[in-house]
Design a protein around this nucleic acid. Structure first.
Lengths: 248, 248
DNA sequence: TTGACACAGTTGTATATACCATTCATTGTC
DNA sequence: GACAATGAATGGTATATACAACTGTGTCAA
């Protein structure tokens, strides 16, 4: 058989790091992102994709099914698959971009990257990531200033398999969460909010002369059922609050 | 073949409204909900489930894969499948019923009504309600105990025109929010979360010997475009956190 | 014209099979 | 005792096949 027309032909001599259904998903999302297929457009049928990409229908089906779950496409039995309308995701907490928050309120924002390193998970981290203690994790600490005053310490741990080049990124200009959501959309997000007395380290970073109650938001995000990021966002209670308004 | 031992055997004479992989998912989640399998417990292997349920491995695999994406279980190649840690219960921006939360986590709850009175709005209150200072408002303070330990102080101001008989209600048995939502559903809700050092009054109510960071949730609800309630919920940071998990 | 019907095309699900990757316990070797 | 090799168990993926369910269209007959 001539495999030349097969897009994703198996080649035993090379590694196959990415699953084929992932490649099919990428094939679809790339064409949507590039504007080849527009919102509402009809996608090729499963059989068309089977012929075009040289994979089995079950593989195409899985790719399209997952894209449906991610809201990228919609499907209708007996009709076809279509590019879903680009719905802005209503985020529960608009805390994603502290830089935005600061600049939008008329202040100047500055991000200072204090640490970027690779660490070994202790017991607590291992529990948070559901891995064994000692597992390698990436670690970063960024302080966000509002008009030269520290407003928030952003401390993140990232699973290396999820973002292997995390240590090489320029986190000062492009915030971590943008890298993370580019790599893959989170399928599950957990928020927990605490009130804490900051440890010495945090007090120094936040430039707090006296121990002051701090708001601490811990966020974990899941991809493929595995925790890929744990972020701890700490702000002095006197300078920051978390708020939201919604209509039931 | 004898289908008697097959759990989900096909029967052409009956409708099959639910897909088999959904039945398998249900089988798993039911056993977790019923406490047959606990957090961290190992699930039967895919092959075990194949034998037990009489479905193919691909069907079991799809069920377990989707449960992984939903955060119900975690899986590890070469090891097995396990019940995932439970997500924090309270939804971040939902109305949470502190009594429910306490009893559902296996503790005993008690509500102590400390104050119920009519007051005049000061500047801050007037601003919160968007009324003139001096306007009459109803005021209540309730302490919620978890196993005899104060867990939260609930302080509310209610617009009299909204609940004229607020002062006569039995707030110890029927919590205020139930009266409020019965009167009319909120059309808009605002939440703001602070970290504060409790004032003397709050420290006494919460039985805090030393000043400790406290989580403070302020909620305002609107009906017919007017603020009808402002609630302040204060909990010691060491005893309480606000959390939620959601799937985008 | 209208309704009934058949049919092709599409997605949804189920199965058997196969092979790969990872993990862990066991066994053997030095 | 330490280390390496082996193998079983488990999950991860890919495929071919089959049938079911649904939709839209076209055809045919009354």
């Amino acid at each position: 058989m001539m495999p030349s027309d097969r897009r994703f032909a198996t080649d035993p001599s090379t590694v196959r790091p990415v699953a084929r259904y992932e490649q099919v998903k990428r094939y679809i999302t790339d064409r949507i992102a590039d504007g080849v297929w527009h919102e509402g457009d009809r996608l090729p049928s499963e059989m068309d994709l089977v012929d075009a990409l040289g994979v089995s229908r079950m593989t195409v089906n899985r790719a399209l099914r997952e894209l449906t779950g991610e809201g990228v496409i919609t499907r209708a039995q007996g009709v076809g698959s279509f590019v879903a309308p680009a719905a802005p995701r209503a985020e529960l907490l608009e805390l994603h971009d502290i830089a935005d928050e600061i600049t939008r309120s008329g202040h100047t924002h500055r991000a200072r990257v204090l640490m970027v390193s690779s660490v070994r998970a202790d017991m607590a981290l291992a529990a948070a990531f559901d891995v064994r203690p000692g597992t390698k994790l990436f670690h970063s600490v960024i302080v966000h200033d509002e008009d030269e005053t520290p407003l928030q310490v952003e401390e993140r741990y990232v699973a290396p398999h999820f973002l292997p080049d995390y240590l090489d990124l320029d986190l000062a200009t492009v915030p971590p969460h943008r890298h993370l959501s580019r790599a893959a959309p989170a399928e599950q997000i957990e928020h927990v909010i605490f009130a804490v007395t900051p440890c010495e380290r945090l007090r120094a970073w936040l430039d707090l002369p006296t121990p002051e109650p701090c708001l601490q938001l811990m966020r974990r995000t899941w991809v493929n059922g595995r925790v890929v990021m744990r972020g701890t966002f700490t702000s002095p209670g006197s300078r920051y609050s978390i708020g939201g308004r919604y209509i039931p």
